[in-house]
Amino acid sequence: MNAARAGKAPRSGKMLPGYNFAYLDEESKRMIRRGLLKAVAIPGFQIPFGGREMPLPYGWGTGGIQVTASIITPEDVLKVIDQGADDTTNAVSIRQFFERVAGIASTTRTREATIIQTRHRIPETPLASGQIMVFQVPIPEPLRFIEPSETETATLHALGDYGIMHVKLYEDIVRHGHIATCYAYPVEVNGRYVMDPSPIPRFDNPKLHMSPALMLFGAGREKRLYALPPHTAVVSLDFEDHPFAIQRPEAACAICGSTESYLDELIVDDAGARRYVCSDTDYCQRRAEARGEARGEAS
């Protein structure tokens, strides 16, 4: 299928007995894949699907897990991140889940992964053609907060009637003096559908535009799938006199010194001292290692 998927991938092979490959039964996986094909065919459009019960609560990534379970093959290498980190509880649990029920290999390295399941972040390391991003989506409907009726939002999507999305941004400027929506920032996909890029920070929105990777979105509670095929135009909504802009970090990462990546703010003592570190742990680690090597060679 592609360079990343074709090679290597020493699957662990240790699968729990008594489970179908990747937990879901084959019929469910086919149903979800059919939904994903539709989603890819109509970028940004929400496809309903028959969400299954998964062995974790709604809100913990049931949508993302179902998508991953449906597309994963024994040769795949999986990376799971939560808030950009590979070592958080949710990320570790989901990675171990697939190691056990699919016997697949996992990694923390963005470049080595063929499937990256994520909540909140898109890795800083640029994605490559052939990689698949799987997003765990809490609320797939971008118009929901302003229009509570599902039939009405469906009609608005059908007619491309997106004025109320700007009402929300207008309210932001009224209240904060600038567009303060800093996550789930609405985007227009391929000049047609308005889509919620889910809880990724606004900082990551530009990474969606013309990405060489396939992006799949799964909402487990709301039972919706949507997708961005590779090389799709994604434009963040804005006003002419208040253009879309990403927040640039004010500090550098305390570990790797990056001024380009998305930083987490840590309060480190009772006096309110702060440190900033990269939210993408893999990116941070690679940079820190490279710096260490450079320093080692120098000395």
């Binding site: 009637d161 004025g163 109320i164 700007h166 009402v167 207008y170 400027i173 804005d238 006003f239 002419e240 006199d241 208040h242």
Partner: peptide
């Protein structure tokens, strides 16, 4: 805005 006005001012 529904008619496409995109200038906040």
């Amino acid at each position: 805005m529904a008619q496409g006005a995109r200038h906040y001012g």
